[in-house]
Nucleic acid binder design. Structure first.
Length: 436
RNA sequence: GGAGGGGUUCCCGAGUGGCCAAAGGGAUCAGACUGUAAAUCUGACGCGCAAGCUUCGGUGGUUCAAAUCCACCCCCCUCCA
């Protein structure tokens, strides 16, 4: 389990920390120059934890996950930790209220769903620095309370814990409190670091900048329990220039699971990135070099036309997450819907759209009123909203604006006797099949 | 267990008997302008074509009339024990 003395992959010109810094991806460093030297000395073991808070990771988790990959590419050994234990407790860091606990069944189900997602970006078969996937439940579930309190708890001063910025505002916030359960989260995560240090000689932990308190907690604990110096680095939490929340749209969170967010929707999400954010996102979410990205930015600025960055970002990230197939499906749909004349699509094209993951539903000739169909396809939340959309000239069928609320999707109007491409607003499409 | 403060429409938050489907802000959506961008402007934002209906932690009650008053209950916060 000793770290090998091998030097990191010589293909990386810069050291990993400088590389991350040039991408503006380093918020805080615990150890600073010492950490840089530590990483330069050889292949190190780096970990990042991901708690199961849903059945899929979302794009917010991609920054640390891809950072792990960057470390691996620089010759270090990444450990992706899935928080089977910590997920049962709930991280209070910078959360303004106590969260309700999910059942243990649900959490273990989520853990299983997260594993392949965590694995897909890392290389598990590349010799010395092959990635590792671990679950912190493995070393906590059989730890009895008394031993834990004596062996681990004793190293924590509550005085220090309540000073952590991550829980301070929660403690001070009027009308909110924090349970002992959530308060203990820091101890569990700290223990993870110490345990990984012991088991795998892990010496570096990375995480979002909200994890700073938990990471430094782990550094302290590792020193106290194992007398080892370990390090930490935090990555930026992704924010948008306009202040709205990153990674959410009307239809909700952008997930990595293609069943929850189709590759098409995923691609479209990135394509819609604001100019003010797009170069930053290229640095966070792609493996293009900082120089390449700066070059793209310079070109976009010079051209004075529509920037190319969003397209590059959408292609890069979609391919990374959904593979070549997912990307080409997403591009096919996008081109058919946004650049072509919808009414000229062939029956095969339309079938392909359905296969590629364009949202699709079936209607019968008895319930084919436009209002009804908009609601059925969830393009409108209610009849009232559907009517409003129609009134606003926001709805079209097969490329034709619908102005009449009594418009019916009849067979004569269908493409190839059964298809309708519904559009609400500028970007939302839905394929409808008429069954006679 | 005691004392006090709270629970309002997605979020924050006003409202303390009729003028309340409920101020204001945020988020979101649509339209215009654009580049499937931002900013800006306009509009929408419980349900219903409408008449109207259902909402303000829950259940009952008082009243011509309740988010607002009363009773009980549930949940949250603070301090004390």
């Amino acid at each position: 389990m000793n770290s090998s003395g091998k030097s990191p992959d010589s293909s990386s010109e810069k050291d990993i920390i400088s590389d991350l810094q040039s991408r503006n991806m380093v918020v805080q460093l615990a150890g600073g120059d010492e950490l840089t030297a530590h990483l330069a000395e050889g292949s190190r073991v780096v970990y990042c934890g991901f708690d199961p808070t849903a059945s899929s990771l979302h794009i917010g988790s991609m920054v640390p996950l891809l950072a792990l990959k960057r470390f691996q590419m620089a010759g270090h050994k990444p450990i992706a930790l899935v928080g089977g234990a910590t997920g049962m407790i709930g991280d209070p860091s910078f959360k303004d209220s106590e969260r309700k606990l999910n059942s243990t069944d649900i959490i273990s189900d989520w853990v299983e769903q997260l594993k392949p997602q965590l694995s897909q970006f890392l290389d598990f078969d590349c010799g010395e620095n092959s990635a590792l996937l671990v679950n912190n439940l493995d070393w906590t579930q059989d730890y009895d309370v008394l031993s834990f309190l004596r062996d681990v708890g004793k190293h924590f001063a509550v005085n220090a814990m309540i000073q952590k910025e991550s829980v301070k505002q929660r403690l001070e916030r009027e009308g909110e409190g924090i349970s002992f359960t959530e308060f203990s989260y820091m101890i569990l995560q700290s223990y993870d670091f110490a345990e990984l240090n012991k088991r795998y000689d892990c010496t570096v932990q990375i995480g979002g900048s909200d994890q700073w308190g938990n990471i430094t907690g782990g550094i302290d604990l590792t020193r106290r329990m194992h007398q080892n110096q370990v390090f930490g680095a935090t990555l930026p939490l992704v924010t948008k220039a306009d202040g709205s929340k990153f990674g959410k749209t009307e239809s909700g969170t952008i997930w990595l699971d293609p069943k929850k967010t189709s590759p098409y929707a995923f691609y479209q999400f990135w394509l819609g990135t604001a100019d003010a954010d797009v170069y930053k996102f290229l640095k966070f979410f792609t493996f293009l070099s900082a120089e390449q990205i700066d070059e793209i930015e310079a070109q976009d600025k010079a051209s004075g036309m529509k920037p190319q960055a969003q397209g590059i970002l959408a292609r890069e990230v979609t391919e990374l997450v959904h593979g070549e197939q997912g990307l080409s499906a997403a591009v096919r749909i996008s081109e058919a819907l946004f650049s072509g004349d919808i009414s000229s699509l062939t029956a095969e094209d339309l079938q392909q759209l359905e296969q590629d993951g364009l949202p699709c539903s079936t209607i019968s000739s008895e319930s084919n009123g436009i209002v009804e169909v908009l609601v059925a396809t969830e393009l409108a939340k209610s009849n009232k909203m559907a009517r409003e959309f129609i009134g606003n000239n926001a709805v079209s069928v097969n490329g034709q604006l619908v102005a009449d609320q009594d418009f019916a999707l009849t067979q004569e109007k269908a493409l190839h006797t059964q298809y309708f491409v519904l559009k609400r607003g500028k970007k939302l499409f839905h394929l409808v099949k008429l069954v006679v």
